[in-house]
Design a protein around this nucleic acid. Sequence first.
DNA 1: CCTTTGCTGTTTACGACGTACACGTAGTAC
DNA 2: GTACTACGTGTACGTCGTAAACAGCAAAGG
Lengths: 285, 285
Amino acid sequence: MRGRAEDPDHGVELLWRGAGAEPRPGLSLARIVRAAVEVADAEGLAGLSMRKVADRLGFTTMSLYRHVPGRDQLVDLMRDAVMAEQPLTPPAAAAPVPGAWRATLEVCARASWELRRRHPWLAEVRGSRHLPGPNGVAHYEHMLSAVRHTGLTPAEMIAAVGLVGRFLDAEALLLVETARQERESGVSEEEWWGSRDSLFERLDRYPTLTYLWEAGGYDHPEDSFEFGLARILDGIELLIQKRDETRDGICQICGKPVETPASGRPRKYCSHACRQRAYRQRGPA
Amino acid sequence: MRGRAEDPDHGVELLWRGAGAEPRPGLSLARIVRAAVEVADAEGLAGLSMRKVADRLGFTTMSLYRHVPGRDQLVDLMRDAVMAEQPLTPPAAAAPVPGAWRATLEVCARASWELRRRHPWLAEVRGSRHLPGPNGVAHYEHMLSAVRHTGLTPAEMIAAVGLVGRFLDAEALLLVETARQERESGVSEEEWWGSRDSLFERLDRYPTLTYLWEAGGYDHPEDSFEFGLARILDGIELLIQKRDETRDGICQICGKPVETPASGRPRKYCSHACRQRAYRQRGPA
DNA sequence: CCTTTGCTGTTTACGACGTACACGTAGTAC
DNA sequence: GTACTACGTGTACGTCGTAAACAGCAAAGG
């Protein structure tokens, strides 16, 4: 183990090997990861230190380094460990249902959201060099497969899933940070802002701000997770529709070719029946 | 100054008082903030320390505490200082142009994006208790005013602007983090991932992932900022349209009442002329 | 003149952090 | 017995934010 911190493949190995059977006493990777998750759950990722993990287990700090190369790799292991908690919805049917992508992606997003509520520090993990473990990749694969048969280009699928993921982290970070500040300062959010009267006195000069304030926009806010998720999925849906429509000369419903009129707007459907079917498929506005 | 770290209003005062004329030698708030911005520009927010700022100015660490209550408040001051660099586009015309909200919001977003490219650490500022300064509030007010006359509810306006803002930070964080890791490790992103072959060997089991990989989705990715901004603005636009349409019985163009037919879909426009005008206003698909 | 007051910058110190390095100690293979 | 290895420990270094006491100096008041 000593000197392995620089070995790139060692981190991969730790993440991807199955949990070896080890009911023996003493330290073990699984025990360390579990203890670390407990610490991070309670005190956030910034409050996670090797010393605290070791103390919780009753060992010295440096003993951890016999099992984990360092703090960063420990966080990678924690991530993948808690992702195992969230079961994946079964893979989409072999014959993809049109429009099912949205429900699947939404379920995924809500599951991830739930996970971030249980382990808020997940959103605090930053940096572009965190190795994905098997559970992380499985989740990623699952989200990608949701948008696979939508007419999006490969790069667009990747971008769409990435956008949803980053949105999740951004929203979760909001909650984590308020919780952290309340925990560490002992002062609630309202109290803290309330004791800054001298700030609010200066905000009268801003017309829209005061309008929204007086209209109660800040008293009855939208749920920012729900709002953002809806907007982003709507935006993706619009893109998918646009990609669909660019399949010119093909009926949007049955896929048969459509004769294009010499002038005017090109037709989307091959028959009245298909147009009506599309109308019903769109559902009530 | 000593012991003022606990005075809530002192932070507000520092942020909102105009820059007093102080061409004298020695330390000053403005000089400290300027030096701190330089350090953070070069080394990121994590690399910003009171010692480094003091060294750069040729003073001792503790001398800074005569002018700034602490590191957090210094960051607040830095934020507002760099926001002064970005000039605001002039306020929207008194008679709001329908549909102009999108262009305005997009210009705002791109300006903020540009600012984050110049000062990447802006995206690293976390926490829900950062005092806004005059420049920050001006930007916020400006974005809010962009969506003011769109038919959105107050809470929806706030949520929409917040969503765009958080998106900006999330995307910028992506760039900051890769830059930081490359700077601190001296290893480029490709090199780093390239030396993890043992990871990629395990990714064959994931069909969608390998499909996207082989289709070149990762070789020619979408610009994630452009992609995300377009999707989010599309999503907001859809909501605005929906809010518009719920103004039943009122012509979407001229605002005059529309007679509702006894059966069938309620009409959106009061006349052929208005319908045609709406068609042209939508522009080419 | 001297003294008081207040602002400014300095010095030292504390407790946290990640982890490098040298050292034990115990179990196992030869 | 004797190497070898895995595991756990103790000490130490350099980083961080900042609390507390102290020193120099200018203006103000007597």
